[in-house]
Amino acid sequence: MGKKVIHNNIRQLRFSKDEMTQQQLADEVGVSRQTIVAIEKEKYSPSLELAFRIARVFDRSLEGVFFYQQGEGNNNE
């Protein structure tokens, strides 16, 4: 079984939203800047609640920000 990872495009979304900083996003969703850094680097998968809050900041659906992809070799599962 391949490694399951939740990917995201928060970095691109931040830049398209008037180059929003990590700190600004962190303040809006109520977490530390380090947590936003960890989410962007995919070192931390946020809770469902935090994921919804982030998606709401960018006026996107959850799938518009986060997407689930299994590791290589298991893409057809």
């Binding site: 977490v31 380090q34 960890a38 935090l50």
Partner: peptide, 8 residues
């Protein structure tokens, strides 16, 4: 001091 969030 950074506030404690869900990751912490």
């Amino acid at each position: 001091i950074p506030k404690e969030d869900e990751r912490d």
